[in-house]
Amino acid sequence: RPLSCPNHEGKTMEFYCEACETAMCGECRAGEHREHGTVLLRDV
């Protein structure tokens, strides 16, 4: 079952931030994590 983002209601966490070692949604990735290296969560 997909994980919901606690910061963006209705968004699914699909990415993993390698710098912060945390899962995130597309909005997180485009925002606070935009300078960080990210991979698809399913690839982690």
Rank of each mutant, 00 (worst) to 15 (best):
R1E: 00
R1D: 11
R1V: 14
R1A: 11
R1W: 00
P2M: 15
P2K: 15
P2L: 15
P2Q: 13
L3S: 14
L3M: 15
L3A: 15
L3F: 15
L3I: 15
L3R: 08
L3Q: 12
S4E: 05
S4Y: 15
S4D: 13
S4A: 10
S4I: 11
S4K: 11
S4L: 05
S4W: 02
C5G: 00
C5L: 00
C5F: 02
C5R: 00
C5P: 00
C5V: 00
C5Y: 00
C5E: 00
C5Q: 00
P6S: 12
P6N: 04
P6W: 02
P6L: 06
P6Y: 11
P6Q: 12
P6A: 12
N7A: 13
N7T: 15
N7W: 06
N7I: 13
N7P: 02
H8L: 03
H8T: 02
H8E: 03
H8F: 01
H8M: 06
H8V: 03
E9K: 08
E9H: 01
E9F: 12
E9C: 11
E9G: 09
E9T: 13
G10D: 12
G10E: 11
G10N: 12
G10M: 07
G10C: 04
G10L: 07
K11V: 08
K11N: 14
K11R: 09
K11E: 13
K11G: 09
K11H: 03
T12M: 08
T12L: 09
T12V: 03
T12D: 14
T12P: 15
M13V: 08
M13W: 05
M13G: 07
M13P: 14
M13T: 12
M13Y: 05
M13L: 06
E14Y: 02
E14V: 07
E14G: 05
E14K: 04
E14A: 05
E14P: 06
E14R: 03
E14I: 04
E14L: 07
F15W: 07
F15P: 01
F15Y: 08
F15L: 06
F15C: 04
F15K: 03
F15S: 05
F15M: 03
Y16E: 04
Y16M: 09
Y16S: 03
Y16T: 05
Y16H: 09
Y16F: 12
Y16G: 01
Y16L: 04
C17Q: 01
C17D: 07
C17I: 00
C17E: 02
C17L: 00
E18I: 06
E18N: 12
E18Y: 08
E18C: 05
A19R: 12
A19H: 06
A19L: 08
A19I: 01
A19F: 04
A19V: 10
A19T: 12
A19M: 11
A19E: 09
A19S: 11
C20E: 02
C20R: 01
C20I: 00
C20A: 01
C20M: 00
C20Q: 02
C20G: 02
E21A: 08
E21N: 08
E21L: 06
E21T: 10
T22G: 04
T22R: 07
T22D: 07
T22S: 10
T22F: 03
A23I: 02
A23F: 10
A23D: 13
A23P: 14
A23G: 07
M24L: 13
M24I: 15
M24P: 04
M24D: 01
M24V: 13
C25H: 02
C25G: 02
C25A: 02
G26P: 13
G26K: 09
G26F: 10
G26A: 13
G26T: 05
E27S: 07
E27A: 10
E27H: 07
E27T: 08
E27G: 08
E27R: 08
E27F: 15
C28R: 04
C28W: 01
C28P: 02
C28V: 02
C28F: 01
C28Q: 03
R29A: 14
R29M: 10
R29F: 05
R29Y: 07
R29P: 06
A30C: 07
A30W: 06
A30I: 06
A30V: 11
A30Y: 05
A30S: 10
A30P: 04
G31A: 08
G31V: 08
G31Y: 05
G31P: 15
E32Y: 06
E32L: 11
E32N: 03
E32T: 15
H33V: 02
H33I: 01
H33N: 03
H33G: 03
H33D: 05
H33L: 01
H33S: 04
R34D: 10
R34I: 15
R34T: 14
R34P: 10
R34C: 09
E35M: 05
E35F: 03
E35R: 04
E35T: 12
H36A: 03
H36C: 11
H36W: 02
H36Q: 01
H36V: 02
H36K: 07
H36D: 02
G37D: 15
G37M: 03
G37C: 13
G37Q: 13
G37L: 06
G37N: 14
G37P: 09
T38G: 05
T38K: 09
T38S: 14
T38D: 13
T38E: 12
T38H: 05
V39I: 02
V39Q: 10
V39C: 13
V39T: 14
V39G: 12
V39R: 12
L40R: 12
L40Q: 15
L40I: 08
L40W: 04
L40F: 07
L41R: 13
L41Q: 13
L41Y: 09
L41M: 15
L41T: 06
L41F: 05
L41A: 08
L41I: 08
R42W: 05
R42H: 14
R42K: 14
R42G: 11
R42L: 05
R42A: 09
R42M: 04
R42N: 15
D43Y: 00
D43T: 07
D43L: 00
D43A: 03
D43E: 14
D43F: 04
D43S: 09
V44G: 12
V44S: 12
V44F: 12
V44A: 11
